[in-house]
């Protein structure tokens, strides 16, 4: 049973991690990287490290994402209200 959960968690983590590289908009990138952190939290809980899981949950899932979003907003790459085109990673590089 534990092994199954472990496998599901790890595969979710890996898929989310690949999606971080593949995603097109910064919004998706942040969501996916928070997803990686969620996977890590589950993993830490399964490995019986509640302290580390708690830290990862607060810092990895919540604060890191917020800090990235604020930083992107500061350099004008974070526009939720606009069309999706403006959020495109490849476009903003040009």
């Amino acid at each position: 049973m534990n092994i199954i959960i472990l496998v599901i968690t790890v595969s979710m983590l890996v898929i989310a991690a690949f999606y971080v590289v593949w995603a097109d908009s910064f919004f998706t990138v942040l969501a996916a990287s928070s997803m990686v952190s969620v996977g890590l939290v589950l993993l830490f809980v399964l490995l019986r490290a509640p302290d580390v899981a708690l830290t990862e949950a607060v810092v990895g899932v919540a604060l890191t994402g917020v800090i990235y979003a604020l930083t992107l907003a500061k350099i004008d790459l974070w526009k939720i209200n606009d069309n999706d085109d403006n959020n495109d990673v490849s476009q903003s590089k040009q």
């Binding site: 509640p50 302290d51 708690l54 830290t55 607060v58 810092v59 919540a62 604060l63 917020v66």
Partner: peptide
């Protein structure tokens, strides 16, 4: 709770502090 029970249950100053900051933010 996390901060004050740091010596009894998992958690402690770092985690509690981060939650505190998240709450105010």
């Amino acid at each position: 709770y996390i901060i004050l029970h740091g010596h009894l249950t998992p958690g402690g100053g770092f985690q509690g502090g981060a939650v505190l900051a998240a709450a105010f933010f």
